[in-house]
């Protein structure tokens, strides 16, 4: 990859942001100066605030209910049990059924894979066409797309219901896939457009002189040069689609609910005694996929979210 990226301008490699370029502030001070103690002290306290919920989630999910009722919320379990995890995965009850989160997990997977695939393919082609094959009005559609991404989804909810019903895919996974493809389009198109426009235009011209057409240039020149941005897009979409709640509720039937909806139904359905350990295990399970993506992707995740922000 090194040789691919070395020809790409630095601005493209680090995204629109310069987070990768290292700190730029004033000179570092001596260690253990009062200022430094303040600085690291503040950062430490802030970190505790951010980490506590994760800590509590994990600890609670490993305790038995009696211990939860007795002990304090921050204490690690005296007796570690994985029972809550098992129950959350396969036995916890929503209002409708009692087969746990596993159903929601697999629904989410089934929604996620085609949604990520289609939204990224379409958006990357959009971005490519917008940069290299501009036609009359193409920028107008792009502007509408970007403005559309700021419009509250609520205003488009019902027209899409009608649209999906007419297409015969209302309440199906494919309907939801289409919705994710549509609503992922603005940010991803922006991402790809910005990336492709940072590639040297002469490369595109050279390929045209070499007789490559629209698809030839896309597949043979652009795609191989754009692997990093595709990874960014995948990260963005996996976390975004996995975390969706609203579209899942609106456009699918209860047996097809994605994991987030299932989670909410398990935790917030009031039936008998609340099992906080099971709830936290379920919450953690739902958060696991995006967390894994996040921790595995590191700076690429930052780049993904900043891509939308810098030139939104």
């Amino acid at each position: 990859m090194a040789d691919i990226t070395s020809q790409i301008p630095a601005s493209a490699r680090t995204g629109a942001t310069a987070i990768g370029s290292g700190p730029r502030g004033p000179k570092p001070r001596r260690r253990l100066s009062p200022g430094n103690i303040m600085l690291y002290g503040t950062l430490f306290v802030v970190s505790v605030y951010y980490l506590l919920p994760l800590w509590v989630m994990v600890m609670t999910s490993l305790k038995g209910m009696p211990e939860i009722r007795m002990g304090n919320i921050f204490a690690p379990p005296v007796e570690v049990t994985f029972q809550p995890w098992v129950k959350a995965w396969s036995e916890a009850c929503t209002g409708l059924n009692c087969d746990g989160l596993s159903r929601g997990f697999w629904n989410s997977v089934k929604i996620l894979i085609p949604s990520v695939f289609f939204s990224i393919i379409i958006a990357s082609i959009n971005g490519y066409a917008l940069v290299n094959w501009r036609f009359k009005g193409s920028d107008v559609f792009f502007t509408i797309l970007i403005f559309g991404s700021f419009i509250p989804y609520q205003i488009m909810l019902y027209p899409i219901v009608i649209l999906l019903r007419e297409m015969g895919i209302y309440g199906t996974l494919w309907g939801l896939v289409l919705v994710h493809t549509i609503f992922g389009m603005p940010i991803l198109t922006l991402l790809f457009r910005n990336y492709f426009s940072s590639l040297p235009e002469e490369l595109f011209k050279a390929a045209r002189v070499d007789g490559a057409g629209f698809w030839g240039i896309y597949f043979r020149i652009m795609l191989p040069m754009s692997l990093p941005i595709f990874v960014v897009a995948i990260i963005l979409q996996v976390t975004g689609i996995w975390n969706d709640f609203l579209f899942g509720v609106v456009y699918t039937k209860p047996e097809l609910y994605p994991m987030t909806v299932q989670l909410n139904n398990i935790v917030n359905s009031v039936q008998g005694v609340k099992e906080y350990n099971v709830n936290m295990a379920a919450t953690l399970l739902t958060g696991l996929v995006p967390l894994i993506v996040y921790f595995a992707s590191g700076k690429l995740f930052v780049r993904g979210i900043a891509a939308g922000a810098v030139k939104g």
Binding site: D3, I4, S6, P200, L203, K205, A206
Partner: peptide, 8 residues
């Protein structure tokens, strides 16, 4: 081309 425009 000025920037060589070689396919990397």
């Amino acid at each position: 081309f000025q920037s060589y425009a070689l396919y990397p």
